[in-house]
Amino acid sequence: MLYMNSDILRRLQKLNQLKLTDSEERDVLAFFEKQSAELESLSSAIDTENVERMVHVMPILTVVREDVVVKNFTREELQAGAPETMDGYWQVPRLVE
C-alpha cells in the first residue's frame, strides 16, 4: 500500500511544483514508509466493506442566498498584494514564444 520510491517521489514533486533536497527526499521516503505501514494496519483493523463514505460530518444544507449585489473589490485592491503587476494584470514570464 502507498508504494513509494525515488522515481515516484520525483514525479510527485513535479506534480506539486516542489523540489526537495536529497536529505529531505530521504526523510520523506521514510515518512511514506511509516504511513504505508499504518495504512496497512488500518486496512486490516477496520472493515469498511459495507460502510458508506462520510465526506461531511454534519448535514450540509444547500446554501441558497438572495441574489443581491454586495460589495465587490476593485482590481487595484485585489492586486495590492501581488508580487508583480503590469497595466492592471498579474505579471508572469512569457508562456508562448
Binding site: 500500500m1 502507498l2 508504494y3 513509494m4 515516484i8 517521489l9 510527485l12 514533486q13 506534480l15 506539486n16 516542489l18 520523506v28 515518512f31 511514506f32 504511513q35 495504512l39 488500518l42 486496512s43 477496520i46 469498511t48 460502510v51 458508506e52 463514505r53 462520510m54 465526506v55 460530518v57
Partner: peptide, 24 residues
C-alpha cells in the same frame, strides 16, 4: 506530497476513500 499521493489514481481507494469510510 503525502496528500497528493493519497489522492492519486493508485491510492485514492485504499487511502482516501478508505479514510472516509473509517470516518463513518
Amino acid at each position: 506530497l503525502f496528500g497528493s499521493e493519497a489522492l492519486s489514481t493508485e491510492n485514492y481507494m485504499p487511502v482516501y476513500d478508505k479514510s472516509l469510510r473509517v470516518r463513518r
